[in-house]
């Protein structure tokens, strides 16, 4: 898969392999924490220590719902873009992402990576490993998925920065 800027207002993902298309389509679903307390705690981390009780209460009442709305909106934007992903059997896929959606993509990919890393309890060391294991457990595959999403984030940032 190649990710590049297309004209002024778009980012183009071309030569998308079927497995890459599948991983991309999983992004919105992966972002659903399903109420998992550890994932929720990571997405909505505390903005201060417990001595700031009034601030924490205000944050929970006013800011957290805004964050939840923002994260959901990013997921929905990615989901809608992915509906336009063309990948016919036997052919590589192509997807055009409007430039104005790049922040939503970066955000949703980050949500996906954070949730996967939290759910599977990856250590710092594991997350910085780039060697392919000799055999793949489900956990190893999830680590590859996290790294794949990281690469897409990098390419999107490159495409935006080139402007």
């Amino acid at each position: 898969m190649l990710i590049r800027r297309l004209k002024e207002n778009s980012i183009e993902l071309v030569d998308i392999e079927p497995i890459e298309a599948e991983l991309l389509r999983q992004v919105p679903g992966v972002c659903e924490s399903g109420g998992d307390p550890r994932s929720e705690a990571r997405l909505f981390s505390s903005p201060a220590d417990s001595s700031e009780s009034q601030f924490l209460n205000d944050w929970a009442e006013y800011v957290r719902p805004e964050l939840r709305h923002l994260f959901l909106a990013a997921r929905n934007t990615v989901k809608e873009d992915l509906e336009k992903l063309s990948d016919f059997p036997g052919r590589l896929g192509r997807l055009i992402v409007p430039r104005v959606h790049s922040d939503a993509w970066l955000n949703a990919l980050n949500q996906a990576r954070l949730i996967l890393a939290t759910k599977f309890n990856f250590s710092d060391r594991e997350l910085s490993m780039h060697e392919a294991p000799k055999w793949f457990s489900r956990r190893d595959l999830v680590l590859q998925q996290i790294n794949f999403y990281a690469e897409i984030q990098e390419r999107i940032m490159d495409a935006v920065e080139d402007e």
């Binding site: 997405l43 909505f44 981390s45 505390s46 903005p47 201060a48 220590d49 700031e52 601030f55 800011v63 964050l67 923002l70 955000n107 980050n110 949500q111 954070l114």
Partner: peptide
Amino acid sequence: VQQLHEYLLLATLE
């Protein structure tokens, strides 16, 4: 801090 949380960074006020 709120802006940093929007980007999913771990940020606190102290």
